[in-house]
Amino acid sequence: MITLSELSRIFTMGDQEVRALNRVNLQIDQGEYLSVMGPSGSGKSTLLNIIGLLDQPSSGTYLLENRDVTALSEAEQAKVRRERIGFIFQAFHLVPRLTAAENIELPLILEGLPPAERQARVAAALEQTDLVERAHHRPAELSGGQRQRVAIARATILKPAVLLADEPTGNLDHKTGAEVVELLEKLHHEGTTVIVVTHDRELGARAHRRIQMRDGEIVEDTSPKSQERRFAPSST
């Protein structure tokens, strides 16, 4: 479903070039549960941003559902983000002046759905994430775990093909983090492709496929499909 080939992302900092991603090849199938781990600056967030179309690769190709999405126009990319990709952030990124229900409704508004349909979908999502009682509270009145559940409900309300989670438990204590992970795994069981970027070994280990990154390259991949790249040398 996701095919990255020879994908590079080069940032220019002053007169120095930083290769955040260096000719990465990666194939992810529908319904996979994948964790991306590695030290800070290894390029895992950049990888996530490119898969999520928030960033553009400097070279290489990225096929999402057999479509070269990097060639799309800005508005078309926005549409792909809206309908095919869900984001979950460490910092939750809820809009503080909107209630939980309204935050969840945002993607539906951006999609331009009629209010009646939006209400029904939001109600269902609240039910699914066990947030019905907190529906009309603002983020400031919610616990960390509840905020992240709101963010997950918002990310999945349009039934995206792939859910991208960047340190989803980074701001949560162990117990609430576990609840959030449980919710993510439930979504995985329902067929959503889940990609988790994390520092947390325990969380990373739960994924069915684990990718290790270092210096913009994939240095370890437990997937049988890319065996040949397992323990690949750190420079090519």
Partner: peptide
């Protein structure tokens, strides 16, 4: 940034 991630166009 969030709105963009959620699929808002420019």
């Amino acid at each position: 940034g969030l709105l963009k991630a959620l699929g808002a166009t420019r």
